[in-house]
Design a protein around this nucleic acid. Structure first.
Lengths: 192, 192
DNA sequence: TGATATAAATCGAACGTTCATTCTAAAAAA
DNA sequence: TTTTTTAGAATGAACGTTCGATTTATATCA
């Protein structure tokens, strides 16, 4: 794939994301995407096989930030610091307009679209595993009680974060400040 | 409105709900709804002005259970009992196939559809207010510390429950047992 | 270098289908 | 008979997608 091709593809994806944030996957027509990208239908279909393929690509992007975030958290010396950083980064991500909406849109799509679901399951598993590692390390350092079910706790936190994302997507305002979120997380794992 | 009319309307709504659970609001065609209801298009349009109106009616139903639930919780003598009952009722509700999906579908619709949003905001406010009352009563009974920000806590619990509903809607399996959910809630409010 | 041939990129009209909705008219009920 | 209920064909608009024509870029050769 040439550099030019990649560039065009990402332009189309960007335009599609804008439209999808505005109206959702299935209310957005290809005509809208074409108009937003200032490209003809023929050209858009030259770079993507179908609308479905564009949706898949967008759904994959919804998890972009997670991997590097978890890697960063693992380098921090204490769980408290890691949770603070998580709160900060999540708040920042939520403040980016539309990211939350796109994530929720993709989640809902995952419930019906097998290939999107596969993407989501993999990303979710990776998050829970990483988070569990974080908790296990903290337990090892004596920051948490030894009898904690870290697997369950990690899963619960994932669920709770999804709730925050959902709320952000629906309300126009951020429901939580970074500080409150940090306190919530600390409370959740039983740190304070 | 005759009894017969009400009956027909609720039949159509039931059929629509089945379709919406299966494919979502905007991927479901009126043809599908008609087929599911075993009624002709003309007849469906005799009972509902538009697809939009059917969606609105379905979105309203998504909150049906909340009111009576909160009323019930308020009659219980301790917060612990109230949370146990909440956990039990929520688990039961989540186990009803499709309720979670319909709720999430309606939530996402609320983010773009003003009249659905109004319904949701009202229902959410009512829940948070009721829950805060519950927490305030418990504080008064000495079950919770006096300096608790019950307003914030009630909102956080609402967000967290949304996360649970979202997860249930996407995974085919229930993520939480009633017991775990109860423990989670108790932990959350700082009861145990 | 300039001329020519090939390929890649791009456009927008057009396709067949499906959409939500409406209309006509028959059947049933009053 | 008049009104209400029902079916299903018909409507025009919008959908995702395709396709042939055209322009632009790249490679080949004189």
């Amino acid at each position: 794939m040439s550099q030019r091709t990649d560039q065009r593809r990402s332009e189309i994806l960007q335009a599609a994301a804008t439209c999808f944030i505005r109206r959702g996957f299935h209310q957005t027509s290809m005509k809208e995407v074409c108009a937003e990208a200032k490209l003809s239908p023929g050209l858009v279909y030259h770079y993507f096989e179908s609308k479905e393929q564009i949706i898949q690509a967008i759904a994959q992007q919804a998890h972009r930030a997670t991997g590097s975030l978890m890697a960063e958290l693992e380098t921090l010396p204490t769980l408290r610091l890691a949770l603070a950083r998580l709160a900060e980064r999540l708040t920042h991500w939520l403040a980016q307009n539309g990211e939350a909406r796109l994530y929720i849109e993709a989640s809902v799509e995952a419930s019906r679209n097998p290939s999107v679901r596969a993407t989501f399951r993999a990303a979710d598993d990776a998050f829970v595993t990483s988070f569990r590692l974080l908790l296990d390390a903290a337990t090892h350092r004596g920051e948490l009680p030894r009898d904690l079910d870290t697997e369950l706790l990690a899963a619960l936190i994932g669920i709770c974060l999804d709730g925050i994302i959902l709320n952000t997507a629906i309300q126009e305002t951020l429901p939580l400040s970074s500080d409150v979120l940090q306190q919530l997380l600390e409370r959740f794992v039983g740190l304070s």
